[in-house]
Design a protein around this nucleic acid. Sequence first.
DNA 1: ACATACCTGACTAAAATGGTCAAGTATAGA
DNA 2: TCTATACTTGACCATTTTAGTCAGGTATGT
Lengths: 141, 141
Amino acid sequence: MKLTSKGRYAVMALVDLARFDSINPVSLRDISLRQGISLDYLEQIFSKLKKNQIVQSIRGTQGGYVLSKKPNEIKLTNIFHAVDEKVKTVQCKKESKKGCNGKATKCSTHNLWDELETHINSFFEKKSLEDLLKNNNDQRI
Amino acid sequence: MKLTSKGRYAVMALVDLARFDSINPVSLRDISLRQGISLDYLEQIFSKLKKNQIVQSIRGTQGGYVLSKKPNEIKLTNIFHAVDEKVKTVQCKKESKKGCNGKATKCSTHNLWDELETHINSFFEKKSLEDLLKNNNDQRI
DNA sequence: ACATACCTGACTAAAATGGTCAAGTATAGA
DNA sequence: TCTATACTTGACCATTTTAGTCAGGTATGT
Ligand code: FES
Ligand code: FES
């Protein structure tokens, strides 16, 4: 099980944004340089963040992005959902009655994976951007 | 983040094994049929489980595999470790002082992912094969 | 007008995944 | 002893996912 770069980058970029957007909108170019993330890739990510009302864009010179909400209102769940970084532990379709093997009942491990998914998601629901800012106050770049 | 089939299959197969091995060694062919997992793939998985002393093999006709330990002594951690289903959340090398971006310090999200990894692993350390058997006593196939 | 920076969609190299295939070896039972 | 069963090993491969790149746009402050 591993976390993909898309999810990691989204959070990294938003932490960066949260730290600097109180002064001016933050351009992706700046984030790209500070965080070492490809500019083109960031654009894809921010397009999704914008669609999900996590950031707002300001076009033109001196433009950039700003958070749409306060850092304590942005949970990791929201971010991950926005960029399609989903936690998937079961093989089967959850809604279906069928098991992952195509049989009529759920397999012997289905409940376990379902518990695991809940366990992981609870972590993402607890953590907000604000929590991350606290941890990094002293680590200004 | 998703769980791979290798990890899922390993657990499914071991639950099957735990349920039936008290009578006779269980052949991979049987597990393959009951669980709907490719026989060739199961062989790869069991080779690793054997190397890690989770199962024992008995060759020849009527042969098969048997658990090496009691179900309550086999944690998910052990199984996952055996088949290289590892939880990886950070991008960087943990031992290194360097960050994922190649910079001198760890990135602003490093601690978060590290916490997440601990959170997930704690789930695997808690759960044993025995826990799974309990849940499925009534679901004999 | 022009530089900046957002916006969009198509494309792609590389890695991981989830297997298959081939050729064995060991052993129980007829 | 022969043979069927079932473990053992290693190479190979198609597909999917990932992590981007590339090539064009469009909007706007100065
Ligand atoms: S994972 Fe849902 S039935 Fe197997
Ligand atoms: S994940 Fe470890 S430094 Fe970024």
